[in-house]
Amino acid sequence: MTDLSNASARQWPEPAAMLTLIKPITWFPPMWAYLCGTVSSGVSPLSRPGLVALGVFLAGPVVCGMSQAANDWCDRHVDAINEPYRPIPSGRIPGRWGLYIALTMSLLALVIGWQLGPWGFGATVLGVLAAWAYSAEPVRLKKSGWWGPGLVGLSYETLPWFTGAAVLSAGAPSGHVVIVALLYGIGAHGIMTLNDFKALEGDRQMGVNSLPVTLGPEKAAWVASVVMAVPQVVVIGLLTLWDRPWHAAGVSAVLVVQFWAMSVMMRDPKGKAPWYNGVGVGLYVTGMMISAFAIRSLGGA
């Protein structure tokens, strides 16, 4: 347990707290989506390993890490209720250091994005703007249980997928890539809704109208499950239409297991939402990569 009396006297951030602030555990989805994009492009990722590695680093530690720092700074009052021992409310990152870290990482993201060419830089600009629009006043889309998770889903899945495909192919991705990336981004709205369960009490007190707050845990869990499942069903139909039956069967298999996990979650939505985020999300992203391999030969280059 952190000694709050000592933490409150700090002038400089605690190094370990700075790593906690940018939440490495959250980096995986955009990194994975960027890799899905490179696979779906039709260009071998091994042919341009530098662009792949730089893009993965940008999508995860830099842009996603920056978004987490920005969110924690803008959410410091909510976190003081929900999780007072997090880096900013605990004082381990004192004063306005949380803001300075988020702004510095925003600039770093733009510098790195510039190295990925016009498509990579444009996507980076959108990612940085989306991160601040989600967390910061006066926009603060996080206040909405519909717009907030939707923006994050598109930013974490669709945008890095599109970017990976565009950077590797040095041009606009094919329609197949755009459609599948968009569908998985829409489905990620449900994942973000389940993630809001952990902040239910603080969100209610601070006027953040997440779906668990406005609909209640049971209805919110149903909405999240439907929003996650429907885009995957559409992907399965499209892969079948595009003559990729084996890939469609693979996505179907992981969706069936997700249905089982959803049924477990429904017994106790508030208690089981974190469990589902560990189990169901892994299955969801498995389907993403199966789909990426399915469309790589459909004119992605």
Score class of each variant (00 low, 15 high):
32 W>E: 03
34 Y>M: 03
35 L>K: 04
37 G>C: 10
38 T>N: 09
39 V>L: 04
39 V>Q: 02
39 V>G: 00
42 G>H: 09
42 G>S: 11
43 V>Q: 07
44 S>F: 14
45 P>C: 08
46 L>P: 04
46 L>Y: 10
47 S>D: 15
48 R>W: 06
49 P>W: 12
50 G>I: 15
51 L>R: 09
53 A>N: 05
53 A>K: 06
54 L>C: 10
55 G>D: 09
55 G>C: 06
57 F>W: 13
62 V>K: 05
63 V>T: 14
64 C>S: 15
65 G>S: 08
67 S>Y: 00
67 S>H: 00
69 A>V: 12
71 N>E: 07
71 N>M: 09
72 D>T: 11
73 W>D: 13
74 C>T: 12
75 D>G: 06
79 D>Q: 15
79 D>W: 15
80 A>V: 12
81 I>F: 09
82 N>L: 04
83 E>D: 07
84 P>H: 07
84 P>S: 04
85 Y>K: 14
86 R>E: 07
88 I>N: 05
88 I>G: 10
89 P>L: 05
90 S>G: 11
91 G>W: 01
91 G>I: 09
93 I>Y: 01
95 G>K: 05
95 G>M: 03
96 R>Y: 00
97 W>N: 05
98 G>D: 05
100 Y>W: 15
100 Y>K: 15
101 I>A: 07
102 A>Y: 01
103 L>P: 11
104 T>C: 03
106 S>Y: 06
109 A>K: 13
109 A>Y: 12
116 L>T: 01
117 G>L: 03
119 W>C: 10
120 G>R: 03
122 G>C: 08
122 G>L: 09
124 T>G: 11
124 T>M: 09
124 T>E: 05
125 V>W: 03
126 L>K: 10
127 G>H: 01
128 V>I: 08
130 A>S: 14
131 A>V: 15
131 A>S: 15
132 W>G: 02
133 A>T: 08
133 A>F: 09
135 S>M: 03
137 E>S: 03
138 P>K: 02
141 L>H: 02
142 K>W: 01
143 K>S: 00
145 G>K: 03
146 W>G: 00
147 W>P: 01
147 W>E: 04
147 W>S: 03
151 L>M: 11
152 V>G: 02
154 L>N: 03
155 S>R: 02
155 S>E: 04
155 S>Q: 05
156 Y>C: 10
161 W>F: 14
162 F>P: 01
164 G>H: 10
164 G>S: 11
165 A>C: 04
165 A>W: 00
167 V>M: 04
167 V>H: 03
